[in-house]
Amino acid sequence: MKTALVTGAWGFVGRHMTHALRERGWDVATCDLANPEHPVDALDVFAHADRVFDLVVHAAALAPHRAAIDRRPANMAYNLQLDAAMFDWALRSGQRRVLYLSSSAVYPIGFQDGAEPWALHETNTDSAHGIMPDAGYGWTKLTGEKMAAAAVEDGIGLAVHVVRPFSGYGEDQGEDWPFGAFIGRARRREDPFQIWGDGSQVRDWIHISDVVAGALAVVDADVREPVNLCTGRGVSMHDLARMICRETGYDPFLEFLVHAPTGVAYRVGDPDRLHGIYRPRVTLEEGVARAVRAAVTA
């Protein structure tokens, strides 16, 4: 039986990744301080564990949502510590394969100002000038990718797969993220319906099942270069809110909180590299319908 360790297993991506691996028949160990029944700090695992896994999925990160990215810069230090400790442990303990959950936040914000719709390609981080990722979180993930490259260079037989999820969403996403917040507001039939920013911010929404399946397809195909987990389709916050409200069956007044954290204007990925190994299967319309149905029955 194949074995895996999933860090951050209590988080949105981590718990779906854990479920998917177990569905495949893997023996999965997990760690997460947020687990109320069995809190385990990933840093403790990296300091003491010597078990070798077939796959280490590193999804642990402290509060990777917009409010924290903009308002809690100190999280950067902890997330860097997590990544450094993980790669050090992977080399020291002889791990075979690591799946590193990076982020679309690594891309230069100059490509995302909305002046020109730009499909972000994996090579857009390679420029020698003008690299300015999205806030401290983007710098953290870009540094994590550099750590991954160094670990591969220093290690003997260590494979590292880097994936860059765009705006992942799903039925059980928390309200710290826009999609989860919109579903919660619709479930409560809030009127006015609040949207951070002016609603024009465009994102590439990809269902969590496709995030997980795409990431595991990267591992299965043994792709050793970064891969976007995206759809290539951009939908604004305003249009997403309207889509969710229509599916819920009400028509609230939309209130735009222009002074709230908003992030970049336009973030859409180029899915060509992903399409070589996997194509997302859940459309945004179907994902919205699933989430609304789940909210009604909750």
Rank of each mutant, 00 (worst) to 15 (best):
R96Y: 07
E175N: 11
E190A: 04
F111E: 13
R164C: 05
T143S: 15
H161Q: 01
G168W: 09
Y100Q: 02
A105C: 14
V160K: 03
W177N: 09
T143W: 14
I131W: 08
G144V: 12
D126F: 13
G197Q: 02
G114P: 01
F193G: 00
W139I: 10
E116G: 03
G110E: 08
G114V: 02
Y107S: 10
F179A: 02
S127D: 13
A119E: 11
G144R: 09
L91I: 06
F182D: 05
A135V: 01
G199Y: 07
F182A: 10
T143G: 11
G110L: 13
F182P: 06
F193E: 02
L158M: 07
I131T: 12
F111T: 12
G114H: 02
D134K: 04
Q194M: 01
H161M: 01
A135I: 02
E175Q: 06
A149F: 06
Y100D: 01
W196E: 01
M132F: 05
K141Y: 11
N124S: 14
Y137C: 00
G170F: 11
A159I: 00
G174E: 03
G168H: 13
V163M: 04
F193S: 00
F179H: 03
W177E: 04
G170H: 14
H129N: 10
L158H: 04
R185V: 02
I109Q: 15
A148V: 06
V98W: 00
A151T: 08
L99P: 03
I109S: 15
Y169S: 14
G155N: 10
V98E: 01
P192E: 02
V152K: 15
G180N: 03
G144N: 10
D134P: 00
G197S: 01
E145L: 13
A128F: 13
G138V: 05
S104P: 05
R185S: 15
T123R: 14
V163G: 06
Y100H: 06
H161Y: 06
L120E: 10
Q95P: 05
R97T: 01
Y169L: 13
I131M: 13
R92E: 11
I183C: 05
S127P: 03
P117R: 07
P178V: 15
